[in-house]
Each structure stands twice: as C-alpha cells, then as structure tokens.
Design a binder for these strands. Structure first.
Lengths: 223, 223
DNA sequence: TAGATTGTTAATCGATTAACAATC
DNA sequence: TAGATTGTTAATCGATTAACAATC
C-alpha cells in the first residue's frame, strides 16, 4: 500500500489504525526483532534476510515478513532488510523516542529486584517512583528511585505524566492497588500478583505470574 | 467419553495422550482455575458454576467448560462443579502430588529475588540448589538454598532427579547455561534472559522477558 | 414441571503458513 | 540472465465461541 519503499508509513490516520489492529503476539515478536537488530548493529552487517532474522528469533521467514508488513517497512529482493533503518522503523512504530515514566507499587523482595533490574539496564520504561504502605520504606531511595507513601500516588502520577504502573504487592492488596492506579490515571499495568484484576475497563493489563510459569514448565517437562 | 460422571479420567493411555494434546493456553487457564479453587476452599462453598469460575478467572463460561473437558472432569447440571473434587482433579492432571526439584543458575539480583520469592511461598516446584560462577557466592546459603559452582551441576541434577532449571544469568551466558542444563539432563527451562535459546530439542522452554513485557505495556497503554 | 446448567458438536474467528507473481 | 527474496493473497490450522439436546 505505501508507494515509497524502504520506509515506514507516515504518522497519521493509518498509523493509529494500525496500532489498534496489531495483536499482542505481533508486538511481542517485533520487540524481539528489535533487540536482535540492536545487537546486530555493532557488527556492521548492513542488511539481513527474513529467514536469518527468523532463525535468530525462533520463528519462520513467512512470519517475519508478515510481521514487518504491519509496520509498513519494505525490504528489497536483493539484500533483504537494512538493519539500521528497520530498527529505526520499529522504534518509530513503538514511539520509542523518549522514555516512558513508570511507577512501581510494592517494595518487597520482588519490587526491589525489579527496581534494580530495570534501573541497571536503563530501559525506556523508566521507574520514576516507588510506593509502599510500610512507613519504614517511605522516604528511602533505592537505586536512585525514591519510595513514597500511597497518599502521594495521585500527585506524582499527574505531575510526571506517568502512564504505566507495576504491581508487585502481595496478592491481597493487588486489586486495591490496581484500582488506585486506575483512579490516578494510569493507562497500563504490569501485574506480578497472582490474581486476575477486574473492572479496569480501558486499561491494558499484562500479567506475569512467576509461580504459574514454573508450574507450566513442570507440567510440560514431563512431556 | 468417560461413562462415570463427577470424576477424573483414570491414569493410563488416555492420560498421557491428553497431556500431549493439551495446549499451553489450556494449561495456563487450568492453573488459574486451580488457584481460584484453592482460595475458595476455606469458604466452604461446596460447588461453583462455570460462569462463576469464568468471572473469577477473567474468561467465559464456554471456555471453562471446554477446558475442564480436557481433564475429563464432569460437573452436574444442578450444582455445577464440586470445588474440592475439581481441585483434586486438576492436581491429579498436573501430577502435583509431590514437589518438583528445581535448580536455579545465576545468583544475581534477579536470581536472589526468585530464590526468596519461591522459597517464601513454598511452591511445588522447589528450588533445591543454586549455581553461580562467582567464587564469592559459591558455598553461601540463601534462604536455605545453597549456591554451588557450575562444576557440580551435573552431579546434583542427577542425584536429586532435577528436571527443571531456571536461567537468571546475564544475556551473554544464557545459551551456554541452557546447553549445560540440557547436557545435565534437565527437561524444562524457565528462562529470564532476553534471548531466544536455540538447539534444545525435546526441552520445554518458557521465556519470561521482563523488559519486553514492560515495552508491551508501554505500547498498548497508548491505545 | 420449569429453568438453569451441563457436555458436546458445529460455527466462527483469528493467526500462521503456503504459494506465487513481481523484483532486483 | 538465473536465482533468491520480496510483498501479498489464498489456504490451512487451531483456538474460541455459539448452539442445543440432555439432565437434574
């Protein structure tokens, strides 16, 4: 559909339409391609074929071509996809130009580890504040990230235009936390509590359930 | 198919057949149902309808009935599914009678947090040993879990009949670690390193990519 | 009984894969 | 050119949902 090859579709109506239609699977794979390309960049390999990218990502060439189609990036039949430009194309599609302010609720073992993990690899989603109900923790600074009381959630989310929240609280407090985040204006949640959060219409929720993941491995490791 | 109602299919050929055919999605949902039932048990509610379970699990009644079908559990048209017996049915299907010995490789920030996390909620997959290349860490005991050198991996895996491995090493070391685990006889891997592990035929690999998950939330939180 | 729920089969939906003319 | 790869369309595959007779 785009008449100019080797480029991404321009921002505008087509863009936002595409965003709505793209499935979670496609986004996951695009993120994987992105990381592969990033690692490939220093190698000075100018281009890569769909089957090479597929090999590295653990998928198929047809899948890769289909996926890249949704971001409107066109390769060439001679040399495949230009690494640097494709990377730029995915970044543009993800709107990964500036960092995305993120808050984390629950500074327990897992919460602490997440703060460390994300701050060490200064990921684009950047944890700007942590929250906890424990007065012992409030006021402390972990890896450059200050811990606030829950009372301050609303203010900080608004002041810093935070759209993403991470839930690392105990199971019992998870639903309440999700409601607070939603009320403060959060648009997306990464939830580590092993419960199905409910009634958050319009908010995107991604669940990471560590115990469930391990149980899944246990099940399938028995063939 | 099973002529006796309100029971699970007996172990045997049907059983192992079912295991092979069941998709990952179904297993994930069964694990979720399982946790819900577990929490419901103290409430002394004897039974639950498919639509109630669906509400709690964030799915549909038809989906629940379809899922329960694969484990061969039959409810009654009058009262639905008996909580205690269904829970037992899922446990049997998962073979969750005894604990599953598990090893963890990479005792960094994330690895430490995982040891703490899993030991605190004494999950059925039980981390019996940790491994690290850092001589400083070898010999130390974290939450009752001793850290060994990688040289000892083979022996411990064999002695303790370990089938599951968790990879929490830096990205560069992940593939090497996976190969070592595979060589030692591990059958399933939970991988936290942001790389696609390759060439491990016959080994089940579940990836948890924290950065990717957060990027996914960032993307969809923009609608 | 009347009404709600079940197991099961059929229909729908969406995602992956295959096929192929166009291209360099 | 010959040959490999591309974008795109069609075919396949699998998973979810809808429908409904049977049941309590």
């Amino acid at each position: 559909m785009p008449e100019n090859t080797s480029t991404v579709i321009p921002p505008g109506k087509t863009y936002s339409l595409a965003v709505q239609m793209v499935s979670q699977r496609v986004i996951e794979r695009l993120a994987i391609y992105r990381r592969i390309l990033e690692n490939l960049l220093p190698d000075k390999e100018p281009a890569i074929f769909s089957h090479q990218l597929a090999d590295l990502a653990g998928t198929t060439a047809a899948q890769v071509r289909q996926d890249l189609r949704v971001i409107g990036y066109a390769g060439s039949t001679r040399s495949g996809y230009q690494v640097a430009r494709l990377l730029k194309g995915i970044d543009d599609f993800f709107s990964l130009s500036e960092t995305e302010p993120t808050v984390l609720v629950g500074v327990g073992n897992l919460g602490m580890a997440l703060i460390t993990y994300f701050s060490l690899r200064n990921s684009r989603p950047d944890i700007v504040a942590a929250f906890d109900t424990d007065p012992e923790k409030v006021g402390k600074v972990y890896h450059g990230c200050r811990c606030f009381s829950m009372d301050e959630l609303n203010q900080i989310v608004k002041e810093q235009y935070v759209r993403i929240g991470i839930i690392a609280v105990p199971t019992d407090a998870a639903q309440e936390t999700a409601d607070s985040l939603a009320a403060a204006g959060i648009r997306g949640i990464l939830n580590f509590a092993p419960v199905t959060l409910r009634g958050n219409h319009g908010i995107f929720i991604e669940n990471i359930d560590l115990t469930l993941a391990l149980e899944k491995v246990a099940f399938f490791s028995k063939q």
